[in-house]
Amino acid sequence: MNKIGIFCSASDDIAPLFMEKAKELGAWMGEHRKWLIYGGSNCGLMEATARAAKEKGGMIMGIVPTKLEEKGAVSELLDVTFHTVNLSDRKDLMLQESEILVALPGGVGTLDEVFHVIASATIGYHSKKVIFYNIGGFWNGLLDFLKGLESQHFAHRPLSNFFQTANSFEELTGMLDK
């Protein structure tokens, strides 16, 4: 996998552990000459991942919606920039450009992106997976919820067909290095 999409928080006001892990992933991506494809923000885990990747020689693709540009919140690290009108276009382009997608800790925007990928995979638009990078058990509640959807028959097939979970950096990089 050479083109890795990252979904994550744009908040700077989160636990340092999440920043450290985002930087670790970005550095690994740069060292292994992976493309980072992300939302293009200059804040939070987005910028931390991009900066670490860039410092280690990685290439950065930002998929930037108009509102982000209007707020002056676009990273200066981008090698390639795609401009989008809205978040729906952003999600579609990130999915199109990425070979696999990783969900670091994030808020409702990250959830929206994750569910976009999983929902479109369930009906056959693509066969790409999301990897939940479960730093400190961040995704446990959501993973339990997804299991509940299955047990209550709100999913027509196992949702785990459409995502993987990495509980450590080693697990994550093992999944990405295929």
Rank of each mutant, 00 (worst) to 15 (best):
L36F: 12
A53T: 07
S88Q: 13
S9V: 04
S160H: 08
A10P: 02
M46F: 00
G109P: 05
A155W: 00
I14E: 10
A27D: 10
S75Q: 03
D13G: 06
I118F: 06
S9W: 00
A48M: 06
V130A: 01
K54S: 08
H83M: 11
K147Y: 11
G58W: 06
E69P: 01
P158Y: 08
R157H: 12
F82P: 03
D13E: 14
E170C: 10
T84C: 13
G26C: 07
T122I: 07
N86M: 07
K128T: 09
E170Y: 12
M61G: 08
I4G: 04
N167M: 07
P158M: 06
K23F: 02
K3R: 15
L45Q: 05
F169Y: 15
A121C: 11
I63E: 04
G106Y: 00
S11A: 13
A121P: 08
C8Y: 00
I4W: 01
F132G: 02
R33E: 15
I63Y: 01
A48W: 00
T84K: 01
A27C: 07
L77N: 03
G62M: 06
L87G: 08
D13I: 08
L17W: 05
G137Q: 07
A50G: 13
K129D: 07
M46G: 02
G26V: 06
A52H: 02
S120Q: 13
S168A: 11
E70L: 14
M59A: 14
I14H: 03
F163Y: 15
I37H: 05
I6A: 04
E76H: 14
V80H: 10
H83L: 14
E171N: 11
A155D: 09
H126V: 04
V74M: 13
D79H: 14
D177E: 15
I60T: 03
M19R: 12
A48F: 00
T122R: 11
V130I: 15
K23M: 12
A52D: 00
G44M: 01
E150N: 12
F145S: 04
G106L: 03
S88N: 14
L111P: 09
A166E: 09
R33S: 14
V80P: 00
V102E: 06
T110L: 04
P16Y: 11
L25V: 11
M94C: 05
F115I: 13
T165A: 10
T66P: 00
P158T: 11
G124Y: 01
L159S: 10
F163N: 04
F132Y: 13
